[in-house]
Amino acid sequence: MRAITYSRFGAAKDVLKLEDLAVPQAAEGEVLVRIRTSGVNPSDIRARAGGRPGVSEPPFPTIVPHSDGAGVIEAVGKGVTQSRIGERVWIWNGQWQRAFGTAAECIALPSEQAVKLPDHVSFEDGAVLGIPGLTACHSVLGGGTVEGRTVLVSGGAGTVGRLAIQVAVAFGARVLATARGEDGQKAAREAGAEHVFDYSDNDLADQILNATSGSPVDRIVEVEFGKNVETNTKVIAERGTIAAFGSAREMTPVLPFYPLMFKAVTIDLVLVYLLSAAERLAAVENLTTLLEKEALDIRISKVLPLEECASAHDMIAAGDRAGSVILTI
C-alpha cells in the first residue's frame, strides 16, 4: 500500500517520504479501514517536527503520520461482527501512541476507534471529526449542559473554534466569540456567535462584559490560554470553567492565581487523546447527534493528494488558512 512515512524529525520536505508498505492485518478486536481521506492537524506537524515536550527522537523506527481520517471498513479481526465490513467510518487517535496513522491507503486499529459516518457526511468532513470535532464537543459539553448559559469561544474562526460555536449554539447556549480581522469575525458570526470581538483589542474584557450587560461568562473555550488568561479572569463567572485546548503563543503562562481562586474557577486542560472512556463516548454521541441533524458546517480549506503531504504540513504550519487541510487517498 502507498503510505507517507518519516523516521526522523525535521522539515516536512526533508523527512516525509512516499513508500510502499505491506497492508496491515486486523488483529483481534480490530478493523481494517481502507482510507479515503486523512486529516492534517497542528499536532501532526508538531509531532513530525519534534515539537512535543520531552520527545527528542521518534518513538518508532518508521511512522505513518496523522490521527484523523475517514474511509470504509474492509476487513475485521476476531471478535468484531462481520456486519461492519463495508461500513463508512471516521477515525480517532489513529496515530496516538501507535506507529501507523491515516496517511496511508489502509489502517488497522481497535474497532471502537472507527466510528460510523452518516451516509450524508462526506469523507472529507469525516476526516475533521477526530481531533477538531471531539475537541470542540468536549470543550463545550465536557462539564455538562450549556443550555441557557453564556459561552465564550476564543479563536472562533479556527477549525475547533468554529465547530465549538456551532456545538454551543445547537445545545442552547448564548455564544460570544473572538477572532482576527473582518474575515475571521465574519466566519465566527456565520457559525452562530451572537457577538464577535477582535481578540487583539486592548479593552477586550470591557467589550465582552458590555455585550452581556455586565454578566460574566459561564464557560470559556480557549485556544490560547497563556495569552488570554488575564482577559478570561476578568470575564469568567464564579464557579465558571476555562476549557483550554491550546497555549502555543505562551507555553509557560503565569496565572493570576488569587483572582481565579476567589471565583473558584475550574481550569480544564483538554487533551482529546486522553479522554476517559465515558468522556469519549459522550463526545462521540454528541458529535453523532449533531451530524445526524446536519447541524455542523465544516470548512475545508484545501484538499490535496497523498503525494503532497509535505505541502499540506507546510500549509498547517503557516497558519494562514480558512478551514481544514485534507489528503485524499
Score class of each variant (00 low, 15 high):
T135F: 05
A114L: 09
F197A: 03
G246Q: 09
V40T: 00
T289L: 10
Q82V: 07
T135H: 05
A75R: 13
D20T: 14
P132D: 06
W92Y: 15
R162I: 00
V40Y: 00
L18R: 03
I107K: 07
V153R: 02
A317D: 11
I73M: 04
L296D: 02
E307M: 01
S213N: 12
L296W: 08
G79P: 09
A103T: 10
G69I: 03
I63C: 10
V265P: 02
S215R: 15
L109Q: 11
S122H: 06
D68A: 05
S38Y: 09
S301N: 14
S122V: 04
G39N: 03
T328S: 07
G144A: 08
I91G: 09
G143K: 01
G323N: 02
Y199Q: 10
I300T: 09
T328P: 01
A22C: 00
Q25I: 01
A127G: 11
E87A: 14
A108R: 03
D119F: 07
V196Y: 10
L109S: 06
D297E: 15
E57W: 08
E87S: 15
E112N: 14
L304N: 07
A70L: 06
G319H: 01
D218N: 14
A310Y: 11
V270T: 09
R219P: 09
E279A: 15
R46Y: 14
G226A: 05
L152S: 01
E28P: 07
G50N: 07
E182S: 13
R299A: 15
A278W: 03
N202E: 14
A168C: 00
P58I: 05
K302I: 00
A317W: 06
P61D: 11
I35E: 10
A103C: 12
E147Y: 04
W96C: 11
I220N: 05
D206F: 05
F100K: 13
H138D: 08
G94Q: 03
R299C: 06
I73S: 10
E308F: 00
A47L: 08
V229F: 01
I208P: 12
G161T: 06
H195V: 12
G94W: 02
G319L: 03
L291E: 10
V140R: 05
S139M: 02
D206W: 07
V265G: 05
D218C: 04
V160W: 05
V235G: 12
E182P: 02
E307L: 04
G69R: 04
D203R: 12
A11R: 15
A264E: 13
V121E: 06
L296S: 07
S83P: 01
E224A: 13
G214A: 11
V303T: 15
Q95R: 13
R52H: 13
P216L: 09
E112K: 15
S7L: 04
G184E: 11
N286D: 10
G172Y: 04
A47Q: 14
S139K: 01
G184A: 05
D201H: 12
G181Q: 10
A283W: 08
K227S: 15
L274G: 09
V128W: 04
T81E: 13
A104K: 02
T5Q: 12
V303K: 15
S301H: 15
I131P: 05
I165Q: 14
A187C: 01
A191L: 12
G79K: 05
V121P: 12
S56H: 14
G158I: 01
G155N: 03
A237S: 14
Q97R: 14
T289F: 00
A264L: 06
E294L: 01
P259N: 06
K227H: 09
E292I: 03
D203I: 09
G54T: 03
